[in-house]
């Protein structure tokens, strides 16, 4: 789990570094970033309500603030916002948001606003990368930092799968089907990307996804 959290954190650091160092966000999907902000905000509504550990609270805070930062850069920054590929980043996110919401309203553990929003965030996260993957496919010669970002972001849920197996074997009564199935789907969505990423990495070439 720690490795999963760290790859998640590193993915965000890599993305912020890329944007800040190159003053460019080309190849980065604003739609995916906005979906992630929505995911974090709806999942971490309990930030001020329930306290698990300093580590958890800090990470939640970092995830919300950093995705807000990335969106701010892409939308408002004088130089960076010019480099955003708006014409290419055309995924219709309503097709991800509404089904996730409806599914969360139907399949959840408890019928309460907080619980439905939390479940919504789990469902939405599993598909939030799709606009980014579509954009990558449209971009020829993806830069290394962007492909590293997607790789780290994909690895994070994959590492969580191992964590869930471990917890399931060692903790009595540890079951969370909604999270497990969504996490499996989330990781599966990356499979194709992982394949081309590792292939280009082995050959020491820039990543370019077949269209």
């Amino acid at each position: 789990r720690e490795a999963g959290d760290m790859t998640h954190l590193f993915s965000i650091i890599v993305l912020l570094l890329k944007i800040n160092a190159t003053k460019s966000c080309s190849g980065v999907s604003l739609k995916t970033q906005e979906l992630y902000l929505l995911v974090f905000v709806t999942r971490y509504l309990d930030l001020f309500q329930s306290y698990i550990s300093l580590y958890n609270s800090c990470m939640k805070f970092i995830f919300i603030v950093s995705s807000g930062c990335i969106i701010g850069y892409m939308r408002k920054h004088k130089v960076v916002s010019q480099t955003y590929d708006a014409e290419q980043d055309t995924f219709r996110v309503a097709f991800l948001v509404w089904p996730s919401f409806l599914l969360a309203a139907v399949i959840n553990q408890k019928l309460s606003v907080m619980e439905i929003l939390w479940t919504f965030s789990i469902y939405l996260e599993s598909v939030a990368i799709l606009p980014q993957l579509v954009l990558l496919q449209r971009t020829k010669n993806v830069d290394n930092l962007t492909s590293n970002y997607v790789f780290l972001l994909g690895s994070y849920r994959g590492l969580y799968l191992l964590n869930w197996i471990y917890r399931c074997l060692t903790e009595e009564g540890y079951r969370q089907w909604i999270v497990w199935i969504s996490g499996l789907l989330q990781t599966a969505i990356y499979c194709d990307f992982f394949y081309y990423y590792l292939k280009s990495w082995r050959k020491n070439e820039r990543l370019s996804l077949p269209s």
């Binding site: 698990i52 958890n56 969580y160 079951r175 969370q176 089907w177």
Partner: peptide, 10 residues
């Protein structure tokens, strides 16, 4: 079935 009540993962 039982689920961990505390959402202790991120």
């Amino acid at each position: 079935d039982a689920r961990v009540e505390d959402k202790d993962e991120l």
